[in-house]
């Protein structure tokens, strides 16, 4: 008991003392996850729009597949990306394994289905409402998707935030493809796992507190956005 109280106090001190190692880890975590989520949004949102607007053979399979991939275990995503990037893998020549780039790729694989599946639901509901009117006005499909994304932006942003929450909180994928190398690929979650196992609870706790703050922040933002959506949509 005394030990953990002590660890907490130390952790708090670490947070406010501007410890360089700690903030380096935080910064890398944000960089990796934000990049992964930005790329996931870039790919996932237009894809969600296409899935919302078009009826094509195989669409149902794609939707079911995406929904299933939402629950993809991070270690599996990590493993797949590891196999692709390892020296004997198809992309081995790029030498990306154990770099932050590899971690971005792994999180991208993990998060894109989440962003796409959640956004698709939003856009599909909106299209049900807007579809005839937009077609009547003569909107092209591309323009229509843009309009749906814009008018549904609060709910769409919530989908993207869910992706960010998932990316910043996962351990398995970044650990496998990043390797948790100090000063290179060490992010908050892998650092916590390592420091805890080494018995260095201070750093682990400090990082844990930041992760919790991040998660609270993201959820608070999502909540705010939902609120905004509801007042905007009040009829």
């Amino acid at each position: 008991m005394e030990e953990s109280v002590h660890a907490f106090r130390e952790a708090a001190w670490l947070l406010f003392s501007g410890d360089a190692d700690l903030w380096e880890i935080v910064w890398l975590t944000l960089r990796v996850s934000l990049t992964a989520v930005a790329l996931a949004a870039l790919v996932g949102l237009p894809l969600a729009g296409v899935l919302a607007l078009y009826r094509f053979p195989g669409r149902r399979a794609v939707v079911v597949g995406l929904n299933a991939l939402m629950g993809l275990p991070p270690v599996v995503a990590g493993l797949v990306v590891y196999l692709a990037l390892s020296r004997s893998g198809p992309l081995g020549g790029l030498g990306l394994l154990f770099t932050p780039t590899a971690m971005v790729v792994a999180q991208f694989v993990l998060v894109t289905p989440i962003v796409t599946a959640l956004a698709r639901q939003v856009l599909e509901d909106l299209w049900r409402e807007y579809g005839e009117q937009l077609r009547s006005l003569g909107a092209s499909p591309g323009r229509a998707i843009f309009t749906l994304l814009w008018d549904g932006r609060h709910a769409v942003a919530t989908a993207v935030l869910a992706g960010f929450g998932r990316a910043s909180a996962e351990v398995g994928a970044v650990l496998i493809v990043g390797g948790n190398i100090a000063h290179v690929t060490r992010v908050m979650t892998t650092a916590i796992a390592l420091e805890t196992s080494k018995g260095n609870l201070t750093l682990a706790l400090a990082l844990g507190l930041i992760l919790i703050a991040l998660s609270v922040g993201v959820n608070g933002l999502a909540f705010l956005l939902r609120d905004l959506t509801e007042t905007r949509n009040a009829v």
Partner: peptide, 28 residues
């Protein structure tokens, strides 16, 4: 591009009144 329709149940975009009309003009 030479037709328009007013629906029995109006469908309005989630933007200002003016922006709704502007949107239609933009599409044309």
């Amino acid at each position: 591009w030479a037709q328009a329709m007013v629906f029995q149940r109006p469908v309005l975009l989630r933007r200002s009144v003016l922006a709704n009309v502007v949107y239609g003009l933009a599409l044309r």
